[in-house]
Design a protein around this nucleic acid. Structure first.
Lengths: 164, 164
DNA sequence: TGGTATTCGTTGAGGGCTCAAATATGAACC
DNA sequence: GGTTCATATTTGAGCCCTCAACGAATACCA
């Protein structure tokens, strides 16, 4: 007789929760849709290209790429397979670990990224930076950091990054 | 010779942007994964069940259900079809508009929702409310409201709610 | 009344994601 | 060396979502 029962959300909490998920689901969907519409790639692919473009030699081991783009190994494996079909990424064997694969951004991939970037950045401005004040952006920064801290401290699942 | 070029993000902006999407993608994935794992339903289905449970007669026209759950008509149509297979929702013809369909939450659907709720709420607490201070929650509230205001003012696509 | 536009809801193809299982290699230990 | 456990990556099934197209019914309007 000691189950405290679920700690239900107060009215205020419920309001904050619903508003927040709706806002961020919309924002993510809007960004994804713009990329899909104008550059024929989902946000997840864009992020993979960005991480590769920033890496030395524009190359990354699959696992590192998964970590850098905050997604699961499985997702990255599927995604890189698609990106390779488009000629945007090339996979080669890792010389020091025969289990490993190295994903490298090709010149065509870099061009695709360069072409997609301006429209994407503009969309990000519209949905986020034009909507918030400087003060709110600072607040958002620390809020996001707090959430990520929670994410880091919670147990990860077997495969990739998501979930808790 | 008057193209200002893309308004690139400053270092700070880029930091805020990357941190924010990573945080919210993780949070949404974590909530979705908990529901999937413990109650065998995605967050989108849970939200549909919630909106129905709150509606008079636990019933809503398909379009209203789409608006209430902030998703596209197509998504809701597919989802309700699945939920109907599970016996959680029943569709009936609308008496006043022969194009219309009314989705009603069944008793079994209500039970499923009741069973799923405590674990879901607990997860929401863990990923959001336990991570943020009261002050941050207030800030988040107004940040989300600002984003949603932007969403409301931006042109909607043909089908449903998402995208901008 | 007839014509046109709009709304309601569904459908199917296509694609991305997750999950669990499988393969192959590396590391550690005795 | 051989066992055993851990790591790296892939694979395929199954599911959800988007997009575009569709049929059907209603609204608007001359």
């Amino acid at each position: 007789m000691n189950d405290p029962g679920p700690r239900w959300l107060s009215t205020d909490e419920q309001h904050t929760w619903r508003e927040s998920i709706e806002a961020w689901q919309w924002l993510l969907a809007a960004v994804d849709a713009q990329l899909q519409r104008d550059s024929a790639m989902p946000l997840a692919y864009y992020e993979i290209l960005v991480r590769l473009s920033e890496a030395p030699d524009r190359s990354l081991r699959m696992t590192q790429l998964a970590e850098a783009s905050a997604s699961s190994k499985s997702r990255v494996s599927h995604a890189v397979a698609r990106l390779e079909e488009r000629g945007w990424v090339r996979r080669t064997d890792c010389p020091t670990d025969r289990r490993g694969q190295i994903a490298m951004l090709t010149d065509r991939g870099f061009d695709a990224l360069t072409a997609a970037a301006p429209g994407h950045v503009e969309q990000v401005r519209q949905v986020l930076f034009d909507a918030l004040s400087a003060e709110q952006l600072r607040q958002l920064d620390s809020i996001s950091a707090a959430i990520l801290a929670k994410a880091a401290s919670s147990p990860k699942d077997a495969d990739g990054c998501p979930a808790g």
